[in-house]
């Protein structure tokens, strides 16, 4: 197989239908992943970091960037392993185990890079950095890509858009929570309970996008 054949195989959908690059489809995927099916507020993926890291705006932005990067790399890695290794060998049922190992290795890599080049951000993210491994959004996006039969390009675009949606929700939430700190709320709702209630009201707002029918 020469390089051009390999490239066209990677860009076309694994189902066989439709080859090449369809900009309309891409836009639909991007819009749906950011707004209509927002990973946090409508698919319930990545709730733990969403509640845990959304107290400060700075660490929210850092966390968002790290998650976008890991999501994109994970989508790339899992797609390649699934379609070029597992499917040809008839090992599709091992996908869950293979995916989680790829993701764990990737997170380790990101951790090492951050520690070397941005120790401040590394400390700010603290325990949530290794926890990206168990961030359901990362495994979720890989499983969804396979389930939707996205091509390699579509998978990576979908993953990046999902990461942007996650970051958007995280940043909005961090801003709201910094305001909430100043206000007078019932003592038993302080902390996590009020965070979930705010998330619920944000989720109502995002529900408005559901009518767009993308």
């Amino acid at each position: 197989m020469n390089a051009a054949m390999l490239l066209s195989a990677l860009l076309s959908a694994p189902g066989g239908e439709g080859s090449g690059f369809d900009i309309g489809r891409m836009m639909a995927i991007i819009f749906a992943a950011i707004f209509v099916n927002n990973f946090v507020l409508s698919r319930f993926l990545g709730i733990c970091p969403f509640i845990g890291v959304s107290k400060q705006l700075d660490s929210a932005i850092g966390m968002g960037a790290a998650v976008i990067f890991v999501l994109a790399m994970a989508a790339l890695g899992t797609w390649v392993v699934y379609y070029l290794l597992l499917v040809p060998m008839g090992l599709g049922y091992l996908s869950t185990i293979a995916f989680i190992l790829i993701i764990a290795a990737l997170v380790q890599l990101v951790e090492m890079i951050l520690l070397k080049y941005s120790p401040g951000l590394y400390r700010a993210l603290g325990i949530y950095l290794p926890l990206i491994t168990t961030n359901c959004a990362v495994l979720g996006v890989s499983v969804l890509n396979i389930g939707e039969r996205y091509s390699l390009g579509e998978s990576v675009v979908h993953a990046i858009a999902a990461g942007i949606g996650f970051t958007l929700a995280l940043i909005l939430m961090a801003g709201l929570r910094q305001k909430i700190e100043m206000t007078d709320i019932p003592p038993s709702l302080e902390g996590k309970p009020i965070a979930f209630i705010i998330a619920g009201t944000m989720s109502i707002a995002f529900l408005g996008f559901a009518g767009m029918g993308v």
């Binding site: 319930f44 209630i197 529900l207």
Partner: peptide, 9 residues
Amino acid sequence: APGAFILLG
């Protein structure tokens, strides 16, 4: 989705 968040809160 919103119901889940708010009720859990």
